[in-house]
Design a binder for these strands. Structure first.
Length: 831
RNA sequence: GGACGCUUAGCUCAAUGGCAGAGCACCUCGUUUACACCGAGGGGGUUAGGGGUUCGAGUCCCUUAGCGUCCACCA
């Protein structure tokens, strides 16, 4: 075969890829026995919802360089490819498509929507696989995994089950980030903080002035909070009640003192909206305050808003302020108040904090061993400063909300059903702290009997408590001899806590029933009269009563398979997609042949974008250690963003997106690959300039022509003849020898950008410009011809080997055309 | 508010404490049978500013400024 004309990538790339694939050497099992020591990289699963972008091309390039290098060095090399269903991301992409077609997911049956997205994803998956091949990825397609594969899902379920058994997963009613457009909760990582200027309203709240940027949330505010040390409010007691005029009429407000308040901000007093604000939620939790929803999940006001009910929060604001002004409740309005609001990272719409029951993962216990692994150097980061960044994040980690209210994803393997009402004759022990006004038990344990099927009457204990529940039912507040006047963890069964000024007043509402343990109504009233000490106390502090209602407690079943009894309902939520991809290393390797996990786990390198270090890398480390006891990878190599030629972030709206497939088409894959690597230091963003790629297209042509020259001139060489090398030739070969050593060291240090530059420079400016030029004379001289032929071929073939990881197509094609009788892909890396 | 980066030729970026470099761009010359997707040569720098450590600093330390990213808070 003869090399001809200019290098034409299009003619050879598909052919060469097929040659590699047919050889079977992408699969480590097919490599010869010399390849013993495993080397593993997992391809970060690309989102199967569109085309590959420039960032993916960089991932494929760097990982293929590592893979080809290690394979040539004789490692049993596995690069495992995969695709991600990409839950929320894909659903958002699909919803946009629906929108264009004038359709909406909310008008579709869930199953119908799921099937459509599945089809869409599978099509994209196929498309992307083709694009990965186009980029020359030497990954083992026989081990390819998709995040929705049955074996991956099974592993995800098992992990969830184990986490639940270890008490690391819990269901909680907590405040979450709610996107009203997408109708789902989002983790903190999926929200953006956007600076904006709004008005800050100072509203009169009884004797207080409170500042708010969101008057439309304030309807239900019935607690006014201030710092306990704030002298301005010293005359107000914690728990003190105040009657005041508010947006829709008179309300009773309660004073709460809490250190969380910034005395410097506004007036130092604020009202709280626990249902729609994370800080307020925290205060309400701490003080056991009521929480009331004001805004529904579509961003509209609920009936608590009175005349404003049903309005979108945005439009309601001005009208509410108008009303407040009319009522004289607006003290002043500060214009141009700069603050940050949270927005959905996909649609930029405002995040509305909402209280919602969700699955949460306790992160602190999972983070601790991960921190240890990183600190001890079991996992190293490239570039190194990511060590600090990840440690800082892990040390300040918060619980992870796992539930997403979307259809596209792995369904959470939890089933619920209403617990049958237990009304047996059992006796529960119930701890009581404080004083029971009826029989005076103080800080003790009281035995409460339950009666089958009927409550004991309102305002009394009756048995729907679980063992160990704490109920406090007392006369006074916490200021008085340690008796506390609130209800602790049995809130589920407490309907209401009422306060009465006198016991008579309470009896009006709650007539003691005949079946109160051991006492009749008459006895209780009589007993009451005999306790003047309690009278005094009640006169001072009033009396508290519990109104208890029956609670249907939900029973929860968690397992890898559905419960086989009927009337269980599966949780309609799906997992955050990162919960499944966070298990990628062990899930993929356990899915394949049983020996794979043993051979290839822990993997060697995790190469991915610095952007997703928290989303993905940190979670893989935590879940990997938790599940397998071992770190999932030893080295984390993080590349930076790929930017456009001007250093701008690529985005569809800016229209500066560089499609790697177009570049490949125009200049060839090898030019794109080396263009992506050259000058690309880890962690640093890279400006991708088409001109740069063009330059490397020229380099590819240079290689092609140099090979052509060598081929033409060595055709008549006698390979068997003994050759005596002149000193100049020896020097050239020695120089190459040194270069090989340097490059090997650089490759081992992950400095591909320098390695690429070195070989580029050597090949073009030493081999082509000097050695080949000089050889023209030497080849013409019969005395030096043979030695020169030998040297040229030696340098060319060694260079091809070094270039191969970077520019696999052209090097392999030349190798084949030189009739080397082997695949360059599995040639021994020069030593 | 906290953390982490970055600042080197016109542009994009390199440089274990040891002669400041590459690619692209620019200028001059050259069409020579491997290649014009080429060759030979050239210009271009107070390494953001200031201070310090050192025989020696782009590199280490302190400091100022600008840019960027992440985290937290934001009534």
């Amino acid at each position: 075969m003869e090399l001809e004309g200019q290098y034409d990538a299009k003619k050879i790339e598909d052919k060469i890829y097929k040659l590699w694939e047919d050889s079977g050497f992408f699969n480590p099992d097919n490599l010869d026995k010399k390849h013993k020591k495993p080397f593993t990289i997992l391809m970060p699963p690309a989102n199967a919802n569109g085309n590959l972008h420039a960032g993916h091309a960089l991932v494929i390039t760097i990982e293929d360089i590592m893979t080809r290098y290690k394979r040539m060095q004789g490692f049993k090399t596995l690069w495992l490819p995969g695709l991600d269903h990409a839950g929320f991301e894909t659903q958002v992409v699909y919803e946009k498509k629906l929108e264009k077609e004038g359709r909406s997911r909310f008008k579709m049956a869930p199953e119908e929507l799921y099937q459509e997205i599945l089809q869409f994803t599978l099509e994209n998956k196929k498309n992307i696989e083709g694009q990965i091949k186009k980029l020359g990825a030497s990954c083992d397609w026989s081990r390819e995994k998709f995040t929705l594969d049955a074996d991956i899902v099974k592993t995800v379920y098992e992990t969830f089950d184990k986490l639940k058994k270890d008490n690391l997963v819990y269901r909680g009613r907590k405040i979450i980030n709610w996107c009203s457009k997408h109708q789902t909760s989002l983790s903190d990582l999926e929200t953006l903080d956007v600076e904006q200027a709004d008005k800050l309203y100072y509203l009169k709240y009884g004797p207080f002035v409170i500042a708010t940027a969101r008057p439309e949330t304030k309807f239900g505010d019935k607690y006014v909070v201030m710092h306990p040390k704030d002298k301005r409010y010293a005359k107000y007691q914690n728990g003190e009640k105040l009657s005041l005029e508010w947006i829709n009429g008179p309300i009773e407000a309660t004073v709460v003192k809490d250190e969380a308040i910034d005395m410097e901000f506004g007036t130092g007093a604020m009202t709280i909206t626990p249902w729609h604000d994370a800080v307020d939620f925290g205060i309400a939790e701490k003080h056991k305050l009521d929480k009331e929803q004001v805004i529904d999940f579509y961003g509209k006001l609920l009936p608590i808003a009175g005349e404003f009910t049903g309005m979108k929060t945005g439009e309601a604001r001005a009208k509410i302020v108008e009303k407040l002004q009319a009522k004289g409740l607006v003290e002043k309005i500060e214009e141009n108040y700069k603050h940050a609001v949270k927005t959905c990272y996909k649609c930029n719409s405002l995040i509305e904090p909402q209280v919602k029951e969700q699955w949460f993962l306790k992160m602190k216990p999972l983070a601790a061993p991960a921190i240890k692994a990183i600190e001890s150097g079991k996992i190293t980061f490239i570039p190194a400063h990511y060590k600090k960044i990840s440690l800082h994040w892990l040390k300040n980690i918060l619980d992870w909300p796992l539930s997403r209210q979307i259809i596209w994803g792995i369904k959470i393997p939890a089933w619920f059903k209403d617990k049958p009402k237990v009304r047996d004759e059992k006796t529960w022990e119930m701890k009581i702290y404080g004083r029971d006004i009826f029989d005076g038990i103080v800080n003790g344990t009281k035995k409460i009997e339950t009666r089958a099927g009927r409550p004991r009457g309102e305002g009394k204990y009756w048995g729907d408590f679980k063992p160990g529940d704490t109920v406090v039912f007392s006369l006074a507040n916490e200021k008085n001899d340690n008796v506390i006047s609130s209800v602790l963890p049995v809130q589920k069964s407490v309907k209401k806590v009422s306060h009465f000024a006198t016991i008579e007043e309470m009896f009006k509402k709650y007539e003691p029933g005949d079946d109160y343990p051991g006492k009749t109504a008459a006895q209780i009233k009589k007993w009451w009269k005999q306790r003047p000490d309690l009278h005094t106390r009640i006169q001072r502090y009033g009396i508290w009563a519990l109104e208890l209602t029956e609670v249907k407690e939900q029973e929860v079943y968690i397992g890898t398979t559905p419960p086989n009894i009927e009337d269980w309902q599966q949780d309609s939520d799906v997992f955050d997609t990162w919960f499944s991809s966070g298990q990628w290393p062990f899930a993929t390797l356990r899915a394949g042949q049983p020996k794979d996990f043993k051979t290839f786990y822990p993997t060697d390198v995790m190469e991915t974008a610095g952007e997703i270090i928290f989303f993905w890398v940190a979670r893989m480390i935590m879940l990997g250690i938790y599940t397998t006891g071992k770190v999932p990878f030893k080295t984390v190599y993080l590349h930076g963003l790929v930017l456009d030629a001007k250093g701008q972030k690529m985005s569809k709206s800016k229209g500066n997106v560089i499609n790697p497939m177009e570049i490949t088409d125009k200049y060839g894959t090898d030019a794109l690959r080396i263009g992506l690597v050259m000058g690309n230091t880890p962690g640093q963003s890279l400006a991708l300039d088409e001109n740069k790629i063009k330059g490397y297209r020229n380099f590819a042509n240079k290689i092609w022509n140099a090979a052509k020259f060598v081929q033409m001139n060595v055709a008549d060489s006698d390979t068997k003849a003994k050759i005596k090398l002149p000193a100049a030739h020896k020097k050239n070969l020695k120089e190459l020898q040194i270069l090989k050593k340097e490059i090997t060291k650089l490759m081992d240090d992950f400095k591909f950008y320098i390695a690429a530059e070195k070989i580029y420079h050597y090949f073009w400016h030493t081999f082509c410009d000097k050695i080949i030029e000089e050889s023209k004379v030497q080849l013409a001289d019969t005395k030096t011809k043979q030695a020169t032929q030998y040297m040229l071929l030696e340098i060319l073939t060694e260079s091809l080997k070094i270039l191969h990881p970077f520019m696999p197509f052209i090097t392999e094609e030349i190798w084949q055309q030189l009739n080397m009788q082997s695949l360059l892909m599995v040639e021994q890396w020069p030593t």
